[in-house]
């Protein structure tokens, strides 16, 4: 009798603890979003998005950071999406399932995915800036410092390495949803393997390629560490080109909170910038989730 009551109490306690942990998580998310939204909602204006920072970054908008973020993810996608897609095509269409080369590539992709992002930053600094950039300067500009320093291009390429695994895995998943029957049908009509990939497999998996791109963009828009050494700037009065440093949303938040002359004065802008960044990544992720859901539904049909 007493024993069974004890067991009951134990059961209730465990259920209670698990429930409380779950609620804590929900509360944390809600509080976080609310604080950021309430603090930043006044800044979600067209003017805030389209004007330059003023008065030592205590007033004004975030346009250069938004512009830099957009350029960063665009150049990053131009590099990462075709490269990742081609790798995924090799893995699903050409490589034999258990060949050594396919296993090696898969291992490399998994490894890339778990490397801490700051390491990418260091790699970008060492490889793109100190090696590739410095050699370009030596060969074409007589040693004058042009490409051998942090800039938008190197930062974007570093970021593309970080997002490559996301693209490869998403595209691979999408290519696998194209039924084998369709490949056979195309080949039986006298199509070459490449024609089959180009005209049947790729059109059938375009939404997966889109998903991979969006996820990569979302990841790239939020990361700061990889661009810390490779191109992010504190403040710029002009909009950047490929060989310039650039402002970016994530780093801008860091600058406003820690490097500003008057942190309290920048507080509203910090909230505003955080709000914008959050909305941006949230929207991107949601659209990727929706696309992926549609693909899965198609696969199950």
């Amino acid at each position: 009798m007493i024993n069974s009551i004890r067991k009951n109490i134990k059961g209730i306690a465990i259920e209670g603890i698990t429930l409380i942990s779950a609620i804590i998580i929900i509360v944390i998310v809600i509080v976080m979003l609310l604080v950021i939204f309430i603090g930043g909602k006044d800044h979600l204006t067209w003017e805030f998005l389209t004007s330059f920072p003023t008065e030592g970054m205590t007033k004004g908008g975030i346009f250069p950071a938004l512009y830099g973020t957009a350029l960063l993810v665009i150049i990053m996608s131009i590099a990462a999406v075709p490269f990742g897609t081609i790798t995924a095509i090799y893995l699903t269409e050409y490589a034999k399932e258990n060949s050594i080369i396919a296993k090696t590539i898969r291992f490399a992709v998994r490894t890339l995915a778990v490397i801490p992002s700051i390491i990418y930053g260091l790699f970008g600094l060492g490889f793109f800036i100190k090696f590739v950039g410095a050699h370009i300067d030596g060969a074409f500009f007589g040693g004058e410092l042009r490409w051998g320093q942090p800039n938008l291009l190197w930062a974007s390429l570093t970021m593309s390495l970080l997002t490559l695994p996301v693209v490869i895995v998403s595209v691979e998943e999408a290519l696998k949803t194209v039924p084998q029957d369709l490949r056979a049908a195309s080949l039986a009509l006298g199509a070459t393997k490449w024609q089959t990939i180009r005209k049947v497999v790729l059109p059938g998996s375009i939404s997966g390629i889109m998903t991979g791109t969006i996820l990569a963009v979302s990841r790239g828009a939020g990361e700061v560490a990889p661009i810390l050494f490779t191109g992010a700037a504190y403040y710029l009065a002009t909009l950047p080109g490929l060989s310039d440093q650039f402002m970016v949303l994530g780093y801008h938040i860091y600058v406003l909170t820690t490097q500003s002359a008057n942190v309290d004065q920048t507080l509203p802008i910090q909230f505003g910038t955080t709000c914008v960044l959050l909305l941006l990544t949230f929207t991107l992720n949601m659209s990727a989730v929706i696309l992926r859901y549609r693909i899965r539904k198609k696969k199950n049909r």
């Binding site: 056979a184 049908a185 039986a188 024609q195 005209k199 059938g204």
Partner: peptide, 25 residues
């Protein structure tokens, strides 16, 4: 040519399905 056990039209229009072979030729 070959016709398979399970019908396997491409996810294209009726016209494009038939035109596929001639086009790749």
């Amino acid at each position: 040519g070959m016709v398979f056990q399970k019908s396997n039209p491409f996810a294209k229009s009726i016209y494009e399905n038939i035109a596929y072979g001639p086009k790749i030729n």
